[in-house]
């Protein structure tokens, strides 16, 4: 299956401060929860240009943000060699199936490769079938890890 292509006027670029309000609104529309503090903190840690190990990219079309992806390179967690981690990606429902998420993932993977890593990973809720299917369609397979959790309450 060839992935749907993003319209040619979609530009993938590093996030800018002016994008934040749109990203917060986009995330709130997708998740049902507005988290401005979280996004401002992420912007502070990941948003500055020139970072070598942290990536926060947006897709822009017609002057609006139509998607974002965020991730970083994690070194030697539990002895694992450095790898890229994607921990957020979002495209508004009305802009989906146009290949925008594919463009965003390709762009962040290119950044990981430039930084010298050859593996990208992600972790998400097993009921999040939309994103699971997307990552699967990009060729991602189950990683040799088992996520664990413990109730602390």
């Amino acid at each position: 299956m060839a992935a749907a292509k993003a319209p040619p006027d979609v530009l993938v670029r590093p996030v800018e401060p002016a994008d934040l309000d749109q990203i917060i609104a986009l995330d709130a529309a997708i998740t049902g929860l507005a988290k401005p503090d979280y996004w401002y903190e992420l912007f502070h840690r990941y948003g500055s240009r020139g970072r070598q190990q942290r990536f926060f990219l947006v897709a822009e079309a017609g002057g609006s943000v139509v998607g974002y992806v965020i991730g970083d390179i994690r070194d030697w967690e539990f002895g694992q060699p450095p790898c890229g981690w994607v921990f957020g990606i979002g495209v508004p429902p009305q802009a989906r199936l146009g290949g925008i998420a594919t463009r965003l993932l390709d762009a962040i993977c290119a950044g990981f490769r430039r930084a010298g890593v050859i593996k990208v990973r992600t972790l998400l809720d097993r009921d999040n079938n939309l994103l699971l299917s997307f990552f699967r369609s990009q060729g991602m397979m189950a990683a040799p890890f088992i996520p664990l959790e413990l109730d602390l309450a």
């Binding site: 299956m1 079938n129 699971l132 299917s133 990552f135 699967r136 369609s137």
Partner: peptide, 8 residues
Amino acid sequence: FRSITLST
């Protein structure tokens, strides 16, 4: 199984 479409 739910995350893998026939296309994938």
